[in-house]
């Protein structure tokens, strides 16, 4: 009798189901019309099937974004699970599009789907990469900008995963401050 080993044929389930979104800046359409859901997945295998199939961020046009969010959370400030939250923001220089962007984005995705931040992973809503002429941006969004402990855990581990030198600081900003800012910079609530 041959007994099948489930390990050999079952896909590896993730803790969460995730949705990958794509934003393309078409000025003739509204912001929400430009945001498209690409696919959802909840296994390691299905993640890679999707990841291997789509363009790397460095190949996207200016004004485009990828967003990976937990299923049920829309990649916008207004979503109930985002509106009290904020983001760890990494601003890249132009050179880093060729050197770091794709690697950083993949590490970000692996941090999310692998639940790399322990208990603090529950605070994670998603991640965003913005491809922009002035410099690309990467961010991890969390659900409550007052959960300092979880936010700091996520920031410290994220920085470590991306091998950012400890003297290079990254900042956490609330969506409330980002959406109501008048200038081009938003104050950091936390830094690591």
């Amino acid at each position: 009798t041959v007994v099948a080993n489930p390990e050999e044929y079952m896909k590896h389930p993730l803790q969460n189901k995730w949705a990958l979104w794509y934003f393309k800046n078409d000025k003739s359409k509204s912001w929400t019309e430009n945001l498209r859901l690409i696919a959802k997945f909840d296994t390691v295998e299905d993640f890679w099937a999707l990841y291997n199939h789509i363009q790397q961020p460095s190949k996207l046009g200016f004004g485009c974004d990828y967003c990976l969010f937990k299923d049920g959370i829309k990649p916008m400030w207004e979503d109930d699970r985002n509106k009290l939250g904020g983001r760890w923001l990494m601003t890249l220089n132009k050179q880093q599009r060729h050197n770091d962007l794709d690697r950083y984005w993949m590490e970000t995705l692996l941090c999310l789907i692998g639940e790399s931040f322990g208990e603090a992973s529950e605070d994670v809503c998603g991640a965003v990469v913005n491809v922009r002429p002035k410099g690309d941006k990467l961010a991890i969004w969390t659900g409550n900008c007052e959960n300092k402990e979880a936010i700091m855990t996520i920031g410290q581990q994220y920085k470590e995963r991306l091998s950012i030198p400890s003297k290079a600081l990254i900042g956490y900003q609330s969506h409330d401050d980002t959406s109501s800012k008048s200038g081009s910079t938003t104050k950091n609530i936390f830094t690591v």
């Binding site: 590896h12 890679w48 639940e115």
Partner: peptide, 20 residues
Amino acid sequence: GKKQYDREFLLGFQFMAACV
């Protein structure tokens, strides 16, 4: 329990053909 996967584990599946 919580399904946590480290990066090496996840990377190990990148080029495996999906078989299910």
